[in-house]
Design a protein around this nucleic acid. Sequence first.
DNA 1: CGGGATCCCCGACGATACTG
DNA 2: CAGTATCGTCGGGGATCCCG
Lengths: 92, 92
Amino acid sequence: MVLLDLIGRRMALRIIWELSRAAEPLTFRELQTAAETNPSVLNSRLRELREARIVERASDGYVLTSEGLSLLSTLWPLQAWADAWAAEAPDP
Amino acid sequence: MVLLDLIGRRMALRIIWELSRAAEPLTFRELQTAAETNPSVLNSRLRELREARIVERASDGYVLTSEGLSLLSTLWPLQAWADAWAAEAPDP
DNA sequence: CGGGATCCCCGACGATACTG
DNA sequence: CAGTATCGTCGGGGATCCCG
């Protein structure tokens, strides 16, 4: 699936997550700091996410589009599933 | 997210998909053919998916667990999102 | 048929330096 | 501060062989 190719990439979800937490647009550097990544990766992800219309540029930084927000909501059940799954995995 | 690490891997979703389409358990070779992959990758994915309790071995092949099926259902909205997204993406 | 063992290759990632 | 360019590294993926 193309979408998983996108959000499965390093930092992609992290970026979406950080943007969703921020009430205001985040600048390139702010995102870099928040997502604990480097310019080249951040730049790649932002380009891809913008092409996918998940993220867009405001005058003062990056924000999620309405599609990005709806994507986030479809991700919720998955998150819940993963949490439930993690809860029962003892492992280390 | 750990889960995305899992299902984002090559052939992971494909395997789940093929198993969900089959009414009966699929053997290793059948899966290999259906998913159009090679033994080493198939083996890796199968091991990971089994550790995650998404897939299990029956006496005559591999099947999805109930958890695997529930995962599949949480994936539906994502699929719908991706479809809607693909529908409006013109690009050549 | 199931599935481990090997070997090679390529691309994503990461760090850093640099320009406007 | 925003974003690009460069380069080395590392690990996953693919193919193939082969044994129980």
